[in-house]
Structure formats: structure tokens, C-alpha cells
Amino acid sequence: NQASVVANTLIPINTALTLVMMRSEVVTPVGIPAEDIPRLVSMTVNRAVPLGTTLMPDMVKGYA
């Protein structure tokens, strides 16, 4: 099973992502692959992402 990116904290809308905000976890449904974490750093989220939420491609500006 592939690990996905999961919010390690509440990420407010329009926040630039940092490494400490994200962790990898095997979850269903599958979200952004964990190997993309380095690429996500400094990208911003377009909605509030609660703790434990899987990051989906449409949640990160410029990812999809």
C-alpha cells in the first residue's frame, strides 16, 4: 500500500506548507503520494485542512 500525505496539524487556508505540517501514512482513500512531500513544501492550501486529513491534489494550489 502506498503512503499518502496527511496533515500533522490543523493547516489554515492559504498557509504555505512546511515539512512539520505533513506526515506520511497509509490511508483510504489514497491522497497525494508521500514521495511528493518535498515538492509540496512552500505550496499553499486552498482550504483549511484539519489534523489527520489526507491531502488531496485539489487542496494544494499548483499541485494538480
Rank of each mutant, 00 (worst) to 15 (best):
N1Q: 13
N1M: 15
Q2S: 12
Q2D: 15
Q2L: 14
Q2K: 05
A3I: 08
A3V: 08
A3C: 10
A3Y: 09
A3N: 07
S4A: 03
S4K: 00
S4E: 01
V5Q: 01
V5T: 10
V6I: 13
V6Q: 04
A7V: 08
A7F: 02
A7C: 04
A7E: 00
N8Q: 13
N8G: 08
N8E: 07
T9F: 15
T9A: 12
T9P: 02
L10E: 10
L10R: 08
L10Y: 11
I11T: 00
I11Y: 00
I11H: 00
I13G: 09
I13V: 14
I13S: 11
I13L: 12
I13D: 13
N14T: 06
N14L: 06
N14M: 14
T15C: 05
T15L: 05
T15W: 06
A16T: 15
A16N: 07
L17F: 02
L17G: 02
L17P: 02
T18I: 06
T18N: 07
T18G: 05
L19C: 14
L19E: 05
V20N: 10
V20G: 15
V20T: 13
M21K: 04
M21G: 03
M21W: 03
M21F: 04
M22A: 01
M22Q: 01
M22S: 00
M22W: 02
R23V: 12
R23Y: 07
R23N: 06
S24P: 09
S24C: 05
S24W: 06
E25Y: 06
E25R: 04
E25Q: 10
V26S: 13
V26D: 15
V26W: 08
V26K: 04
V26T: 11
V27T: 12
V27K: 11
V27M: 07
V27A: 09
T28G: 05
T28E: 15
P29V: 06
P29R: 03
P29Q: 05
P29A: 04
P29W: 03
V30R: 03
V30G: 07
G31A: 04
G31N: 01
I32E: 01
I32H: 00
P33F: 08
P33S: 11
P33L: 07
A34I: 08
A34T: 07
A34Y: 14
A34K: 07
E35A: 07
E35N: 12
D36H: 11
D36L: 12
D36T: 05
D36K: 06
I37S: 04
I37A: 08
I37T: 15
P38A: 13
P38C: 06
P38W: 09
P38I: 09
P38H: 10
P38E: 08
R39A: 09
R39L: 11
R39E: 04
L40A: 00
V41E: 05
V41L: 12
V41Q: 08
S42Q: 11
S42P: 00
S42W: 07
M43V: 04
M43D: 03
M43E: 05
T44E: 10
V45A: 03
V45L: 11
N46S: 15
N46M: 14
N46E: 15
N46I: 11
R47D: 06
R47S: 13
R47E: 09
R47T: 15
A48G: 15
A48L: 14
A48V: 15
A48I: 12
A48N: 10
V49W: 03
V49F: 03
V49E: 01
P50G: 13
P50D: 15
P50Y: 08
L51P: 13
L51I: 14
G52N: 14
G52F: 06
G52C: 04
T53Y: 06
T53E: 11
T54L: 04
T54C: 04
T54G: 03
T54V: 14
L55E: 02
L55Q: 02
L55D: 01
L55M: 13
M56C: 08
M56F: 08
M56Y: 10
M56H: 07
P57N: 08
P57Y: 07
P57S: 10
P57F: 05
P57A: 13
P57L: 04
P57I: 05
D58Y: 09
D58T: 09
M59H: 11
M59K: 01
M59A: 09
V60G: 01
V60I: 11
V60E: 02
V60L: 06
V60H: 02
K61D: 15
K61W: 13
G62T: 04
G62Q: 10
Y63H: 04
A64Y: 03
A64V: 11
A64T: 14
A64K: 15
A64R: 14
A64G: 11
